[in-house]
């Protein structure tokens, strides 16, 4: 068995929750939502993807024009 630390949620402190580790269902585990390994926030990662997409489209456009 394992105890998960209590956490503050919407201003209310939730008590520690007991979780039975050998329970067959994986759904009893706490859900973890960690940040990205780079750029600190997911929002920045998403912006990076959109900038990357624009650059890829522009690069492909130029590549096609160069050899057309």
């Amino acid at each position: 068995m394992v105890y998960v630390m209590g956490a503050q949620c919407n201003g209310v402190f939730a008590p520690a929750v007991r979780i039975v580790r050998d329970e067959p269902s994986t759904f009893n585990r706490p859900i973890i939502d960690e940040g990205p390994p780079f750029l600190r926030t997911w929002r920045r990662v998403y912006v990076l993807i959109l900038v990357y997409l624009a650059a890829v489209i522009f690069g492909l456009y130029l590549f096609g024009r160069a050899f057309a």
Partner: peptide
């Protein structure tokens, strides 16, 4: 194993699919 891991797999797809 976490929401972050699932998000990273989608980010991986977003970055690698077109190349």
């Amino acid at each position: 194993r976490s929401i972050g891991q699932s998000r990273l797999s989608l980010v991986f797809m977003a970055l690698t699919k077109i190349p």
